[in-house]
């Protein structure tokens, strides 16, 4: 019997040479049922065409590097199994809504700025000294923010967000979820500093609640919920009298 193969159609784009992206097709051996799309790309790079460019590292769904559009859906390529697509060809493209640097590599500098803009660190009026030990935190208090701390910054939510696609000024799902992660941490007192950022013109109010961000999240984070709850927080802020704002 002939060796089983699968066809990968990958976006190619080298700004030094190409006016626009195009597709290139590779037929590769599909020798193991455990193979994922990332394995197929690595096979191509090692044995067929070393110039195919993409990011990857942990290949266990935690480093967040290998997000791509796979047959039009936002996925981590390390977690997309060839067996779920075979015998049809698999279309592999860079994540939607981002500028392309090269082939499957997107430019995510915009997110890095947005991440910083929401002040993703613990803000306190007074620091407690290290010598006095840890803050006590109950499991219920952790449950209040835990899921939002699971974000791996993989950018799948941005690639699925129709609002971000139209207006990349929108702060976007992951950044707002992370703002909520800190706002709801019992150790944090920085909500007042973060609210103006998520309540401004490009903050939560842009969201039209399509909810695709939560659908594509590989880590079970629900950014759509974070955005809706933050809308409530920001509106309360304008209702509550000045002196009581926190």
């Amino acid at each position: 019997m002939a060796e089983k193969t699968i066809t990968i159609q990958a976006t190619r784009f080298d700004p030094d040479k190409d006016a626009r992206p195009h597709l290139q097709s590779y037929e590769i051996p599909f020798i193991d049922e455990s193979m994922v799309v990332l394995d197929a790309l690595n096979y191509i790079k090692t044995h067929v065409d070393g110039s195919l460019s993409y990011r990857w590292s942990c290949r266990m769904g935690i480093c967040g590097s290998c997000g791509m559009m796979i047959n039009g859906q936002s996925k981590l390529s390390c977690s997309a199994f060839l067996r779920d697509y075979w015998p049809k060809p698999i279309l592999v493209e860079p994540l939607n809504n981002f500028p392309i640097i090269r082939d499957l590599v997107i430019d995510m500098e915009d997110f890095m700025h947005k991440l910083k803009s929401i002040k993703p660190w613990i803000i306190r009026k007074t620091e407690i000294p290290l010598g006095s030990g840890e803050h006590r935190q109950t499991n219920a208090q952790i449950d209040d923010f835990r899921q939002f701390s699971e974000c791996i910054n993989c950018m799948l939510c941005y690639s699925a967000c129709p609002v971000y696609g139209l207006n990349n000024e929108f702060r976007g799902p992951a950044a707002i979820a992370l703002a909520r992660r800190y706002n709801h941490d019992s150790r944090d007192e920085g909500t007042k500093e973060r609210l103006p950022v998520i309540a401004d013109a490009e903050g939560v109010w842009e969201c039209s609640f399509v909810g695709e961000c939560s659908v594509v999240c590989p880590k079970g984070v629900d950014p759509a919920k974070a955005i809706q709850q933050s809308k409530l927080d920001t509106s309360l802020r304008f209702v509550v009298p000045f002196g009581n704002r926190e």
């Binding site: 613990i122 620091e127 407690i128 030990g133 935190q137 109950t138 835990r146």
Partner: peptide, 12 residues
């Protein structure tokens, strides 16, 4: 403890 002060979500 320093990591805890910086917000690490340690299990409790």
């Amino acid at each position: 403890i320093q990591m805890e002060h910086w917000g690490c979500p340690w299990s409790r």
